[in-house]
Write a protein that binds this DNA or RNA. Structure first.
Length: 472
RNA sequence: GGUCCCUUCGUCUAGCGGUCUAGGACGUCGCCCUUUCACGGCGAAAACACGGGUUCGAUUCCCGUAGGGAUCACCA
């Protein structure tokens, strides 16, 4: 290939949402293309008309967009190219590299049953391979006349050299009896027509590659390079499937509150490494990524680690961006829309808030107490703290705070420390009940900073509410 | 079952014949910081699946065994 430009493609079938495994395949294709100054193309494999749906296509594009894997040129829709696929099949038929097979579904099932009974490998026996006594008016499929002798070797960029004997491969169907192309035909034709040079996909396609190569050779087309990457497994070691922990990437965003750069970083490190580096930016990934470094064994998905990485990126994220991300969640918790004052409070508190969250949900949950209207709800921990507070402490603190000339965290803390001193209490015995009163929780960002942010009236009011609660 | 692939701490990985008393990260546990929870810092426990070779020398190379995975459609 030498000077030829690298072209990769991501080819999901729109029968469901873009799941995490597909996202990783897309990432590797994207990275490889960018690393080589090539093109990253997108093809929607919608030839399965019964299972392909518009919402799924939208979800895939949405997911890719969220992860910011920008593709080149137009999206190719495979179904629209059916005529071209059929054309190739007929071309093969004409030049003797394919043949008509009139075997019926029932007949083939019978054949397989016999093979099963005889403990023989299940494969098409080539019963129509050399016949020409074609019955009239009967439906037939077009099968590839694949080589039966010798073997095929693929120098896979990830799996290494893999060899399969041609005797193991049967003559696959190219065109169905209704004239529509099979997946095997469609991928090969599309990859060729799109100029794909590197086929990077899940290793569940490794076996397919050998049959596809036979088709490519029959057409005398240039052979692409293959890279079959291992699938992702669930935490229990079983293959990740739709009903087994494999969420759509949209769900990582909407339900789990993940940041796209965190998902990308995690996916990159799953099955690939660069020395001891853990946090790798997009630019570094493009510079460092190589197929040879991709592991050959399947990796287990670890939500704990993803959470941790997500927390890292949240802490590194711009405060305004985080405020925007929690907006709707906070609004829902509050039961009302946020206004500019609310957002200003969140923005101001964000540096402290984001240290305490590993996902956007928790970030939102940990933020709402600032904006709740009085009297704010008390959680269990807060109720206990108030119940066990030293008698009169809250009232004393309230009086001290009310007399402060400048409502600043520093002065508030001074007063709290003074109160602890004179009452022979530990600072915690003063601060914790106050925290409960002011935040409704036993844990929060620095108490005095919170009180400063809340302001004199709101803080004093919340303490009054707590006082009323204790007396009740 | 046939074919193909894989096998380093619980998990993701570094290691590409000697630097390995095997490194990092997540998780776990302990300590520090501290008004709480976090963040941060320090530290601990924790792995080369097993058996043969090759070699002066194997985590690294080869072969078996065991275990795991993928695939065997007129689905993609």
């Amino acid at each position: 290939m030498g000077a030829s430009k690298v072209v990769t493609r991501f080819a999901p079938s729109p029968t469901g949402y873009l799941h995490i495994g597909g996202a990783r395949t897309a990432l590797f294709n994207y990275l490889f293309a960018r690393a080589h100054g090539g093109e990253f193309r997108l093809r929607i494999e919608d030839t399965d008309r019964a299972r392909s749906t518009e919402p799924a296509i939208a979800a895939i594009l949405d997911g890719l967009g969220w992860l910011d894997f920008e593709w080149d040129s137009d999206v190719v829709y495979q179904f629209a190219r059916a005529a071209r696929h059929a054309e190739v099949a007929h071309q093969l038929l004409a030049n003797g590299h394919a043949y008509r097979c009139y075997a019926t579904a029932a007949e083939l099932e019978e054949m397989r049953a016999a093979q099963r009974a005889a403990k023989q490998p299940l494969r098409y026996d080539g019963r129509w391979r050399d016949r020409s006594d074609w019955p009239n008016d009967l439906p037939y499929v077009i099968r590839l006349k694949a080589p039966q002798e010798g073997s095929v070797t693929i120098d896979d960029l990830v799996q290494g050299s893999v060899t399969v004997a041609n005797a193991e491969l049967d003559d696959m169907v190219l065109l169905r009896s209704d004239g529509t192309p099979t997946y095997m035909l469609a991928v090969v034709v599309d990859d060729h027509d799109m100029g794909v040079t590197h086929v990077i996909r899940g290793d569940d396609h490794l076996n397919n590659a050998f049959r596809q190569l036979a088709l490519i050779r029959a057409m005398q087309w240039p052979e692409p390079l293959y890279a079959h990457i291992p699938l992702i497994h669930g935490s229990d070691g079983a293959k990740l499937s739709k009903r087994h922990g494999a969420l759509g990437v949209n769900e990582y965003r909407d339900q789990l509150g993940m940041l796209p750069e965190a998902v990308e970083n995690y996916l990159l490190r799953l099955g690939w490494g660069h020395g001891d580096d853990e946090f790798i930016s997009r630019a570094q990934a493009i510079a460092w990524f190589d197929l040879a470094g991709v592991g050959r064994g399947p990796a287990r998905f670890d939500m704990k680690k993803l959470e941790n990485i997500n927390g890292h990126y949240i802490r590194a994220a711009d405060d305004a961006r985080l405020v925007a991300l929690i907006d709707s969640r906070v609004a829902q918790a509050l039961g009302r829309d946020l206004n500019d004052t609310d957002r200003a409070i969140l923005q101001r508190s964000m540096p402290e808030l984001k240290k305490r969250a590993n996902n956007i949900n928790d970030l939102a949950t940990g933020s709402v107490f600032y904006l709740r209207s009085r009297p704010i709800p008390m959680d269990d921990g807060a109720s206990k703290l108030l119940a066990s507070a030293a008698p009169g402490m809250l009232a004393s603190a309230r009086a001290l705070f009310a007399a402060i000339p400048d409502w600043t965290a520093i002065q508030l803390e001074e007063q709290a420390r003074a109160l602890a001193e004179t009452s022979a209490l530990k600072l915690g015995q003063v601060a914790q009940p106050l925290r409960a009163a002011v935040t409704g929780s036993s844990q929060s960002p620095g108490l005095f900073e919170v009180m400063e942010t809340l302001g004199r009236d709101e803080t004093l009011g919340r303490i009054d509410d707590a006082l009323a609660l204790i007396e009740a």
